[in-house]
Amino acid sequence: MKRIYAFDFDGTLTTKDTLIEFIRFSKGSVRLFLGFLLFSPLLILMKLHLYPNWKAKQRVFSWFFRGVSLDSFNRLCVDFAQQNKQLLRPAGIKKLQQVVRDKDSIVLIISASVDNWVCPFFDEIDKKIQVLGTQIEVKGGYLTGRFITKNCYGQEKVCRLKALYPQRESYELIAFGDSRGDKELLAHADKGYYKPFRETE
């Protein structure tokens, strides 16, 4: 029986939320602060579950990146990953490197983050790793600021996995997560690990 290893990214394999760190990297700390100050009422409503998570995230993303060319955005994503390896948890990467060596395994990163900046973190580890992230809309070579997939959070993580691998009885699912957004994925797994790679906690 095949084994599917499904890893959350932000907080599980990283020490920080990479959306915030990517904005800081690409726009600077001052613009990051101003943007989050502008959207603070929305973000508070989101935390209170009075405004959809995906819609708040899309509005923030759009404010920072609408109109940026896809080529420029992708260059930023690669540079961000190359210059921020310290965000990765060593124990998580060690586990990832271990499971990709298993010829019977399928390795997924299932993340609410935009896959354009998630993928480059794993290019040097193994091309076998598949990233299922939130995908962005591009028209005429430029970002519209909108998402073309649902925010890959909560039940959507399970839906994206089942869309690729619908025959649930044909594989063992081992999942790793750290937050409310991973609850459904961990419950769906044969083995679910919550906050597994935090050596100092």
Rank of each mutant, 00 (worst) to 15 (best):
K2W: 14
R3T: 15
I4E: 09
Y5P: 12
A6V: 11
F9R: 13
F9A: 13
D10A: 00
T15W: 14
K16R: 15
K16Q: 15
L19I: 12
I20M: 06
E21H: 00
G28H: 04
S29F: 05
V30D: 08
R31Q: 09
L34G: 08
G35K: 11
L37G: 10
F39L: 12
S40D: 10
S40L: 15
S40P: 13
L42D: 14
M46P: 00
M46D: 14
Y51V: 09
Y51F: 15
P52M: 06
P52L: 10
N53K: 14
W54S: 11
K55Q: 06
K55P: 05
A56W: 09
K57Y: 07
R59T: 06
W63R: 09
R66E: 11
F73T: 03
N74T: 05
L76V: 01
C77P: 01
D79I: 04
D79K: 12
F80Y: 13
Q82C: 06
Q86C: 07
L88A: 07
I93H: 00
K95M: 07
Q97S: 05
V99Q: 03
R101N: 14
K103E: 11
S105L: 03
V107S: 09
L108F: 14
I109D: 01
I109H: 08
I110Y: 00
S111E: 09
S113L: 08
S113H: 09
S113V: 11
V114N: 00
V114P: 01
N116Y: 13
N116V: 14
W117F: 15
W117I: 13
V118H: 12
C119Q: 13
C119L: 12
F121I: 11
F122E: 13
D123L: 15
E124T: 14
E124S: 14
I125S: 11
I129F: 01
L132D: 00
G133W: 11
I136W: 07
E137I: 10
E137F: 10
G140T: 08
G140I: 07
L143V: 04
L143C: 03
L143Q: 04
G145T: 10
R146G: 06
K150H: 07
N151C: 00
C152T: 07
Y153K: 06
Q155Y: 06
E156D: 01
E156Q: 03
E156S: 00
V158K: 05
L161G: 03
K162F: 03
K162W: 03
A163K: 02
P166K: 05
Q167N: 04
E169I: 05
S170P: 06
Y171K: 02
E172N: 05
F176C: 04
G177L: 02
G177Y: 02
S179H: 06
D182Q: 02
E184R: 02
E184T: 07
E184G: 02
A187T: 09
A187R: 12
A187H: 12
D190T: 04
Y194E: 05
K195R: 15
P196M: 10
P196F: 13
R198C: 08
R198G: 01
T200I: 11
T200G: 09
